[in-house]
Design a protein around this nucleic acid. Structure first.
Lengths: 153, 153
DNA sequence: TATATACATTTGTATATACAAATGTTGTAA
DNA sequence: TTACAACATTTGTATATACAAATGTATATA
């Protein structure tokens, strides 16, 4: 019995079922995405950083910005960026106005790698969502957002 | 801008939004669960193994069974079990009928730890799902299941 | 019965993550 | 202007994970 059946059959609390289902489904989705990147020796985390930097449209990002936007908390963004620098996909410079900060930008080489990966990733995303219609995807997104809504205490 | 706002505001593809949202929400949920276990020095993975073993109701489980049922793939269940053995929460024995296999059972000490943790975990689960009513939780579970439905190719 | 194949787990190694402490920089208040 | 707290990043260390190769056991077949 795999976990999928397990969740469906066992008499688990509805809340417990949800937390397990969330973990399991996210991992399933991440695995598909990661395998699309694998041949380019890029981890999903590294890819996400590149994507954030591209979204900056030239404007550099510092580490705390990256941390905020990162999908999974990289408690250690420094070392993640180190790896991307070693591959020459991003560049690092000290922020001139505040020397505590560091400015990270994506290189041309990084941009062209992203361009190549865009197709592979869209395909993976299509694959992941293929069982739902647009309406259901919206619904799912909304429920996930609502789940995380802050309470005011 | 945190990732939450990012997802909502940016013009991302709907499928891309979903994959990011899934990762992010699962991590958010796991963090809450993990912090409920922290004071007992148990990782979420270790807790899940204990819970699976309790579900066996005395019947021992072997490593491949654990692997199948584990929420996140522990590509290395051996070492995870090692840690639980060191804490005397589970016991390991060679399967008498097939000496390749290993039989893992939860100890009394493991059972009583689980009993203590049950409350902490239910509270955490309540906290995680507090923004949704039962109907919405069901809906969310169903959408997650549908998302992972196998296609026949 | 010898040999090959499949099975179940373990080990090795590289990489990733979590958390705390350390470093260097800036702003503020005496 | 000096001392102190807050900030941004880096480093240290322990633990966790991924993936491949190795070990030991069982099953099948010639």
């Amino acid at each position: 019995m795999t976990i999928e059946e397990h969740i469906k059959t066992k008499t688990l609390g509805i809340a417990q079922k949800l937390t397990i289902n969330l973990s399991y489904t996210a991992q399933w989705s991440n695995d598909i995405l990661a395998s699309a990147l694998k041949s380019h020796d890029l981890s999903l985390q590294q890819f996400n950083v590149l994507r954030i930097l591209r979204g900056q449209k030239g404007k550099p990002a510092n580490l705390s910005t990256l941390n905020e936007r990162m999908v999974t908390k990289a408690s250690n963004t420094t070392r993640l960026v180190d790896k991307l620098i070693k591959k020459e996909l991003v560049a690092r410079a000290t922020c001139p106005s505040n020397r505590r900060k560091v400015e990270i930008t994506i290189t041309n080489s990084g941009l062209s790698l992203l361009k190549i990966l865009d197709t592979a990733i869209s395909n993976a995303e299509e694959k992941i969502t293929s069982q739902l219609d647009n309406n259901e995807i919206e619904q799912l997104n909304n429920l996930l957002n609502k789940l995380r809504t802050e309470t005011k205490n």
